[in-house]
Design a protein around this nucleic acid. Sequence first.
DNA 1: TAGATTGTTAATCGATTAACAATC
DNA 2: TAGATTGTTAATCGATTAACAATC
Lengths: 242, 242
Amino acid sequence: MKLKLQFSPAGGTTCKVVPGPTLKRLPPYHRFLKEWQAMGRRTVSCTDIGARLALDPTQVRKDLESVGVAGKPRVGYVLENLIRDLERFLGWNNLNHAFLAGAGSMGSALLGNRKFEQCGLKIVAGFDVDPLKIGTKIHGTQILPAEKMKELAQRMRILIGILTVPATEAQAVADGMVAGGIRAIWNFAPVRLHVPEHVIVHDEDLYCSIAALSQKLFANLQMRPQATPAMARNISAAVPMR
Amino acid sequence: MKLKLQFSPAGGTTCKVVPGPTLKRLPPYHRFLKEWQAMGRRTVSCTDIGARLALDPTQVRKDLESVGVAGKPRVGYVLENLIRDLERFLGWNNLNHAFLAGAGSMGSALLGNRKFEQCGLKIVAGFDVDPLKIGTKIHGTQILPAEKMKELAQRMRILIGILTVPATEAQAVADGMVAGGIRAIWNFAPVRLHVPEHVIVHDEDLYCSIAALSQKLFANLQMRPQATPAMARNISAAVPMR
DNA sequence: TAGATTGTTAATCGATTAACAATC
DNA sequence: TAGATTGTTAATCGATTAACAATC
């Protein structure tokens, strides 16, 4: 197997870069493999994975290749090894500590999700400006005053920040995160953040999702009405037809 | 301007198809245009938009072309018209009614988001199996017993379902939605749903986001350490290097 | 052995970027 | 007019899909 290496400008370090689309398919693979394992299987083929996830088997093979695991012709992949390698690749073995800013309803929902830890993300503290929330615990995680975030992030060498504050506050809070040494921001606010280029932003824009969903729904209704005119009318003004 | 039309197999209807990546950029455009308008501007150019959102101006122009709006050379686009056309295209003028299944922390967070209505999505009812939640209102929306969902969806001709139940229940609840005539499911459960082909599923997989975020963070730390060895070690086992 | 499946290279497809003429 | 910006076509880039030899 050949590995593509990319030379990094900073030094002698090389670092394999996985295409974004591939990366997004890996967690579903992992989930399926766990199911498969629970069914008592010992090996799995790309055909198996592709069948369940509605993906081209060739694509699955390419994806696994870029993770760097090897299979055996005619047999497939050893399930146990594949799961282990995937988890290692995704960094799900060791926890990254994260701060969460904004303990509103979305922030609380994230604090309540214990499954994140299985994916290597541990929210170690929440921050808010609301005196009623400060000092309390939400789903077991301490809520601290927002003004302490920067200093604590520095001291604890936190690298990941989760941003669940209102859109109006997002940029200011993000600035604080950056000042505290945070290198990656998971942004739930519907705002394009300005950050230095050494900081990564991953936008979780639910409004974009709504747009995509209703657009696809509309196109789909066009093709297969199966609905009374009244139903179609409910949505038909959504997209201009030409 | 030429418009690409796609013939739909079902009948004489034509329906313009917008590439997915384009669609996801439209809500950010809209947001920026509103800001721009608040600043008192009357026109906007692709260069303006691209500069703020870190996008190639040509790409912005292509995107606007596929929405079907026209600008004027040397002037740009009339802001008011552009905003209006974007909203119309995205269907943000008229509301689509949606049901939400699973009034847990994530479900409640979505119920609490009043901004969704500005994007054409109105959650008209929530459903849950918990007797303590049934009959109450969460953020002003009534929570009803889960077993009523299917029939109500049919009667109210609901087309959109939001799925915020635990992974174990997701498929069963989705089946109920489909049986109730729902045509689009916004799925927050980390499961690949099986649905008939006339039903659309949009996955909101936070675990994939975590994977993408930590992977990008790791690659970034490789290139620009700027961190003490201890910091890097915190995360370095995450991805096998070769 | 036979045949399914991997590994790998080539072809296709779609989106982004570049180039440039048209135009206000 | 001059020059910025649109509209549009061509080139590039990257990801997906197809093809096929290698192999257990």
